[in-house]
Computed example of a mutant assay.
Amino acid sequence: IDEHLINTGELQTRPRHLRKYVELIIIDESDRLNATALEMVRDHYDRDNVAVILIGMPGIEKRFSRYPQLYSRVGFAHEYRPLSKDELRFVLERRWPKYGHPLDPDDFTDAQALAAIARITRGNFRLVDRLFTQMERIMQINELNTITDDVVEAARSTLVIGIT
Rank of each mutant, 00 (worst) to 15 (best):
G9P: 01
M139I: 06
T158P: 00
V128F: 03
Y99K: 01
V151Q: 10
G162D: 15
L83I: 02
L103G: 02
R14H: 09
A113E: 04
S72I: 07
N142S: 14
F90K: 14
I141S: 05
L24R: 06
D149E: 15
L18A: 07
I60C: 02
N145V: 07
V91M: 10
L92P: 03
V22L: 13
D129N: 14
I26W: 09
R130P: 00
R95V: 13
P102S: 10
D150S: 11
D129T: 15
P15E: 11
D149A: 07
E61F: 01
V160I: 14
I53T: 08
L11W: 15
V128C: 07
F125H: 09
S65K: 12
P97S: 06
P97I: 05
Q69G: 03
R19K: 15
P82E: 09
L92H: 02
R42S: 05
F125V: 10
I1V: 11
V160A: 09
Q112F: 01
D48W: 09
L103E: 02
I147L: 06
T158Q: 15
E29A: 05
I120P: 09
N34V: 01
P82S: 03
G100E: 07
D110L: 01
P15N: 11
A51L: 14
I25A: 14
D106C: 01
E39I: 03
I1M: 15
D48C: 08
E61A: 12
F108C: 09
H4M: 13
K20S: 14
A116R: 10
V152F: 01
R66E: 09
